[in-house]
Design a protein around this nucleic acid. Structure first.
Lengths: 199, 199
DNA sequence: GTCTATATCAGGATAGAC
DNA sequence: GTCTATCCTGATATAGAC
């Protein structure tokens, strides 16, 4: 549902921009409207003229972030010319680079998972807009590439992406880097061997 | 070193029991001391006599929950008599059963991940007490079992457990069941084939 | 040592001026 | 339509009785 028409969309954007950092850093319950107001350089009344309440603001913001599909960047695997090992590794590396260099993605993952109990629809928006496209794209690639004979491409895609996401959660989100570090290249080498190598 | 205050450990347990549900359901910022007090059937002053503040109470509770290592139950893989495929499948099934039947584990995962930005030490306690033992146990099993010749057991363990945890997060925590369902048996079949890979 | 009662203050949300 | 100023609920934390 788009914001009401008789209000300036410019201010709405301003509010959403200010709300982003606050919600990402502090979660829903921890976010303070005052901070959002200060960051957006708008008065509190203006916020409540554009959004009925805190919940609605949160919903709009998170759904919009989930709709930015560049998060995992694992689609667009159209070309079948190159070796699958090369293509898969490049995509995995790009995804990990994205995440490792942009702390906002980490906090976004924290929010989506942390609030998935109270905001199930937001969690499902994330599944629909981020995870599903990545899984579908990879499944399609594994199915169609002439050099590959994967028994169950859908499950293989889940294993591939699941291992990567778990690596991200473990290493960066949960700060496992200091406790059980692992070389990224080593993980990718063996993961590719598991997925691609025919039995 | 502060002198030990007089307080009954019995009341402390009572408070922690009451705090569990509230913190799990609402996260740190969303949890209300009043609710904890009501659930524990204790007065508010008693809570503050046993714990300096809300943060300390949260820390004790979550660290204690993480120390319950039965969460993932993937260690104790000592016997090398049976077929690896049988053993691995049984352990994976038990882990998934645990999680699927106990909603508290799902909310615990939400909390640990959701609060990992503000409470990094709790996240690391989870890594140390839950994830690491499971990974180490599986790595050891994959390394020592005479019938297996795994190139990189450590990464293979990460792929196995990572795929399972991602499945749990995707399906149950993020409510992906309704959007992209997948048969548990099918996932396990192919995952085992990928990991064990008979030649 | 635990309770009742309360201090203190911040939060979300609104009324009214312009 | 936006701002200033304010309401009021409800939160954490404490003081003082027993």
């Amino acid at each position: 549902m788009p914001p009401p028409r008789d209000l300036s969309p410019e201010k709405a954007e301003q509010i959403l921009a200010g709300a982003m950092r606050e919600f990402l850093e502090n979660g829903f319950a921890g976010a303070r409207i005052d901070k959002i107001v200060a960051a957006a350089k708008v008065s509190k009344a203006t916020v409540y003229r554009h959004f009925p309440d805190k919940v609605a603001l949160f919903n709009v913001l998170i759904q919009r972030m989930a709709a930015k599909k560049e998060l995992f960047e694992l689609q667009n695997m159209q070309s079948f010319d190159e070796e699958p090992a090369i293509v898969l590794r490049r995509h995995a590396e790009k995804m990990l680079d994205n995440v490792a260099t942009d702390p906002q993605i980490l906090t976004f993952l924290r929010i989506i998972i942390g609030e998935s109990g109270r905001f199930p629809l937001l969690a499902q928006a994330f599944i629909r807009d981020v995870e599903k496209p990545a899984l579908d794209g990879l499944t399609r690639y594994l199915t169609l590439h002439p050099k590959l004979k994967i028994a169950d491409p859908e499950v293989t895609a889940r294993a591939f992406i699941g291992t990567l996401i778990h690596f991200v959660l473990f290493t960066y989100v949960l700060h496992g880097k200091d406790i059980m570090p692992i070389e990224r290249d080593r993980l990718l080498d063996e993961l590719l061997a598991l997925v691609i190598k025919p039995k």
